[in-house]
Simulated scan of single mutants.
Amino acid sequence: MIDGSSLQAPFARLRRLSLRGFVAGLTGGLAAILPARAEPVFPPAGSLGLEPPAGMSPAKAFSGFEHRSGASIILMEMPPEAWDQISAKFTPEALAATGFRVKGGRAALPVQGGEGFVLRGSQNANGLNYAKWVAVVRGQPGTGLVTVQVPDGAGKEVPAKAVEAALRTIAFRGKASLADQVAALPYTIGDTAGFRPALVFAGNGLILTEGPKDLDPEREQPAIVVTPSLGQAAVPAGAESAVARKLFASQKDARDVVVTDEERTTRGGAVVVRLRGTFTDAKIGRPMAATQTMVFENDRYLRVMGFADPAKAEALARAERVAASVAMR
C-alpha cells in the first residue's frame, strides 16, 4: 500500500527544483540585460581610482591611464585640507587664464565614498586641441583631481560618452603606506645621499628632506623635489635648456631668480641639463640656493630640484648625487 505522503515528497522536490530553475533563469536573463557594475581601477598604492574607458591602460610615466591616440587621464592626490583651496580656484573664470575654455559651469559629480564636481571644455596645448574634463573630488583619504584630455581626432576611439561614464566611477580607497607609495613611483632612486622620503604627491611626485620635519614651510631643512612630466608632448630637440630655465624661474613663491651655472650632458640617449642658482622666497623673505637637474628622454622628462640655505652648499652637492641616481622604470 502506498500512502499519500510518499507521493507528495517527489512532487515537493520537483516544485523546489522548478522554482530554483525559474529564479536562476530570471537572474541570468537580468544579468544579460543590465550592464555590469564597473569596478574602479587604482594605480599601484594609489587611493584614487576609476574604471577607465575601453582601450585605456595604466600609464607608465604618471598616475592614471593612457591611450595610443594620445588621450590621457591623470589622477592627482592631495591632502584633505586642499579641498577648500582647490574647489575655490577651479571656476570657469579662473581656469580661463590657463587656456582651459570651460563650457557651461561646474556640475555636481557623484563619487563613491565622497563628493565632487566636474568642468567640461577644451584646451590648446603644444599646437594640439583637446576636449578636456577636470573633476575635483574628495573622500575620506583626501582630495583628488582627475584631468581627462582627448585630442581632436581621437573622439571615436575615446568618445565623450565613455569619458562621462568613467567619471561616474571615481572612487576612493584607504591610503597605502609611504614605503608602498615610494615603491610604486615610476622611477627609482639609487642614492638618497642622506635624505629621506617625506611625502608622495600627485601620485608620482616625491619630496625628500633632511631633518625631523616632514613639512617644512619655513625651508629650514634642505629638501629635494622629484617630478616627472605628466604625459605632455615631447620637448623638441634643442629646446631642453630653454625649458629647464623656464621651469627653474617659475618656482612657486620665488622672486629674483638667478641662474649662476648651466651644464648640458648626455646620459645614454637622454639629454641632461643641470642648473644652479639662487632666489628669494617671497613667503619667508629669505635667500635660497637651488640646483635643478632635468633628464629629457624620448617623449618625457624627469625633474629633480634641490633647495637649501646658501650656507649649506654641501647639501646641494648631495642633492645632485640623488639626481644622478634617479632612473625611470
Rank of each mutant, 00 (worst) to 15 (best):
Q292A: 11
T265M: 07
R303K: 08
R274L: 07
T293Y: 04
A289G: 09
K283M: 12
V271R: 00
A289T: 08
V259E: 13
T293S: 12
V272L: 03
M294C: 01
F279R: 00
Q292F: 06
M305N: 12
T293I: 08
L275D: 05
G268S: 12
T280A: 08
A290V: 13
A270Y: 02
L302N: 05
R303A: 06
D299L: 14
R274C: 03
G277T: 00
R276C: 03
G277C: 00
A290Y: 06
D281L: 05
Q292E: 14
T260A: 11
G268M: 11
F279A: 00
D261G: 12
G269H: 05
D261E: 14
M305P: 06
P287Y: 13
A290M: 09
V295R: 02
A290K: 04
P287L: 14
A290C: 08
R286E: 12
A270K: 02
T265E: 05
T291M: 03
V271N: 01
L275P: 07
D299T: 14
F307S: 11
G285A: 11
G285I: 08
T265W: 03
F296C: 10
R300K: 15
G268K: 13
A290I: 09
T278H: 05
A289V: 09
P287W: 14
V259P: 07
F307Y: 15
P287M: 15
V259R: 05
R274M: 07
R276Y: 00
D299R: 15
G277L: 00
T291Y: 03
T260Y: 06
A289R: 06
D299V: 08
N298A: 14
I284M: 05
A289W: 03
A290N: 07
I284W: 01
T291D: 04
D261P: 10
M288K: 03
R286N: 02
R267I: 09
Y301V: 11
G306W: 07
T266Y: 01
Q292V: 14
V272P: 00
Q292T: 09
N298T: 09
E263A: 14
T260M: 09
V272T: 04
R303D: 14
V304Q: 04
P287H: 14
T280H: 01
G306F: 06
T280K: 06
G285W: 13
R276M: 03
F296T: 06
D299A: 15
R264L: 12
Q292R: 11
A282K: 08
L302F: 02
A290T: 11
R267W: 10
M294R: 01
M305W: 12
A270F: 03
L275W: 02
E297S: 13
E262W: 13
T280L: 02
R276A: 06
E297L: 13
G268P: 09
G269P: 00
E262R: 12
E263P: 02
Y301A: 12
R264T: 15
A282L: 05
G306N: 10
E262H: 10
D281P: 04
T280M: 05
V304R: 03
M294Q: 02
D299Q: 14
D281C: 04
G285K: 07
R264I: 15
L302A: 03
D281F: 04
T265G: 09
F296I: 11
G268C: 09
E297R: 12
K283L: 15
V273Q: 07
V272D: 02
R303E: 11
